[in-house]
């Protein structure tokens, strides 16, 4: 079971400070949602957690071990922490099944037959079994995103990072993806979720963190934070969200 500890994380792009000493700790089985305006550093923070983006100061530890510690090996970190992107980023020249089995076979040396059996089982579980031999472009956005989630689950990670996974979807397709995430929470997956779906964040999150200018300005239990934000910047952000109709006024 994995506890993530982010310790004074600082990240610059050129001269611009994108993350400004972020401290965050995520307990095993906890679901943390990151909210905040575009450009506030949510994606960057998420990508630092599994080392996709290098940072300048601070540390990220999984169960007390620094993510750059040789103990993880080259692939251990990626096995334990999966990530799903807004744009799905499926490999367009591979079938769904090939997408899902690539990492288990090539990275983790699983037997092909065994990996495919496991992948098919996983695809079935997420209602995607009939698409195993299809190519990504033949699927709807919602189906592609579900495949992307399955692909990241194929290595049995303990932590899942989700970066606005519904932002590119047509409204009627969002539900099927959100349902999967709810199911994953039920199954005990530790997740850090960047989302603009505030209603969803309120339902699914154990804790919501509001980012602004590369800092966590405010965090707390979702119903409390959405109903009664303490910080002026959080209040302003939520007012704009409510005005845009993305969260029914909870107060």
């Amino acid at each position: 079971m994995t506890r993530i500890v982010i310790d004074k994380l600082t990240k610059f792009y050129g001269d611009k400070m994108v993350l400004d000493g972020v401290d965050l700790s995520v307990a095993p089985h906890e679901v943390v949602c990151l909210i905040g305006a575009s450009g506030s550093g949510k994606s960057t923070l998420l990508r630092c957690i599994n080392g996709l983006t290098e940072f300048d100061e601070g540390a990220v530890r999984l169960d007390g071990v620094d993510i750059f510690d040789p103990a993880f090996g080259r692939t251990g970190l990626y096995k334990r922490v999966g990530i799903v992107f807004q744009a799905y980023n499926l490999f367009p020249h591979m079938t769904v099944l090939q997408n899902v089995t690539l990492a288990p076979i090539k990275v983790h040396g699983r037997d092909r037959r065994e990996a495919e059996t496991a992948a098919l089982k996983l695809l079935d579980m997420f209602g995607l079994g009939q698409f195993a031999q299809a190519y990504p472009e033949q699927l709807s956005g919602g189906q592609q995103q579900r495949v992307a989630i399955v692909r990241s689950l194929a290595t049995e990670p303990e932590v899942l990072l989700l970066d606005e996974v519904t932002a590119a979807l047509d409204p009627e397709l969002i539900g099927e993806v959100l349902k999967i995430i709810r199911d994953l929470k039920t199954s005990g997956m530790t997740m850090v979720i960047v989302t603009h779906e505030m209603g969803f964040a309120r339902d699914v999150a154990d804790r919501v963190c509001f980012l602004d200018g590369g800092r966590i300005v405010e965090q707390g239990e979702p119903h409390r934070l959405f109903a009664d934000p303490q910080q002026p910047r959080t209040q302003k952000f939520l007012e704009r969200i409510i005005a845009a109709g993305r969260l029914e006024a909870a107060r």
Binding site: L52, I83, N89, F91
Partner: peptide, 10 residues
């Protein structure tokens, strides 16, 4: 595509 591959551990 690069990022997805790296995230999978390739």
């Amino acid at each position: 595509q690069n990022m997805a591959a790296k995230a999978l551990g390739l």
